[in-house]
């Protein structure tokens, strides 16, 4: 039995077959507010557009700057709700409407030719994430080719998983070489949001484009789905607890003794 609507089925099929969906940000004001915050932070380094951040930030000072931005943006009480609203209608369909959200939102800044902040190929599930989680990836600039991230589609990810014993003696670069012809490079513009299956191997490479990438990421999962190393409380927080759950969690049978 399946009572999903046509639109829900379209989104579901896309996510299952492709490993990701890209849709228009559901709340433009929230998106613009987040981007403006990043631009304001960059203005401390001389300003300019986010795309041209490499003209004001050196690779040596990048990580300290990135950590400053993460700290300040996560200190904004509006941030996580704004972030959620950008993806809400899609999360409702893909994950559910009673959700746990990662306590901190991450930021990635990839300067052109910077090899100091790369994410080698990995699936989050390989290092303690529950397969019930998705990643909401939010570009603050247009992302394409090596300015973006890559993802191995589910079918190829299954092949890799079945043949993984062939790769266990190697390293992550060799693993990437084994899958590089099969990965999808995500093309996504500012104004759109990406939700991907973090159980599919993904990562990034040296940004060979002439612009800086700014993207944010945050994990969401069904509140009452299994957790792995990333626990409720220390990593995830409930954000849309529903009334029946609130009542039920506190329900006690009548006392008879």
């Amino acid at each position: 039995m399946d009572f999903l609507s046509k639109n829900e089925k379209i989104l579901e099929n896309e996510f299952i077959n492709q490993g990701f969906i890209i849709r228009v940000a559901a709340n433009k004001d929230a998106l613009n507010k987040i981007q403006k915050f990043a631009i304001d932070m960059l203005s401390r380094k001389g300003g300019g557009s986010l795309d041209n951040a490499h003209k004001n930030i050196s690779i040596n000072e990048l990580n300290d700057f990135r950590l400053d931005v993460i700290k300040e943006i996560n200190a904004q009480p509006w941030l996580r709700e704004a972030y959620y609203k950008i993806a809400k209608p899609y999360l409702d369909i893909l994950v559910g409407n009673e959700l746990a959200m990662q306590s901190r939102v991450n930021l990635s800044i990839q300067l052109p030719e910077d090899d100091s902040s790369l994410l080698p190929v990995h699936a989050d599930t390989w290092s303690g994430d529950s397969p019930f989680e998705v990643v909401v990836w939010l570009p603050l600039v247009d992302c394409f080719n090596t300015k973006s991230m890559y993802l191995l589609p589910p079918k190829e990810a299954n092949h890799l998983s079945n043949d993984f014993k062939l790769h266990v003696q190697g390293n992550s670069e060799e693993l990437f070489n084994a899958i590089k012809n099969d990965v999808d490079w995500i093309k996504i513009n500012y104004g759109e949001v990406l939700i991907f299956n973090q159980a599919c191997p993904h990562g990034n490479r040296v940004n060979k484009e002439s612009e800086t990438r700014w993207s944010m990421n945050c994990r969401f999962k069904g509140l009452f789905t299994p957790y792995k190393d990333k626990k409720i409380g220390e990593f995830f927080e409930p954000i849309t607890l529903r009334p029946v759950s609130k009542i039920a969690m506190n329900y006690k049978l009548p006392i008879t003794e």
């Binding site: 019930f132 009452f224 299994p226």
Partner: peptide
């Protein structure tokens, strides 16, 4: 309320064992 919700979810999760 936020902290109590986390507590109640944690106590409820063993009853939501997918396996």
């Amino acid at each position: 309320n936020n902290i109590e919700n986390i507590w109640q979810v944690k106590k409820t999760l063993p009853n939501c064992n997918f396996l």
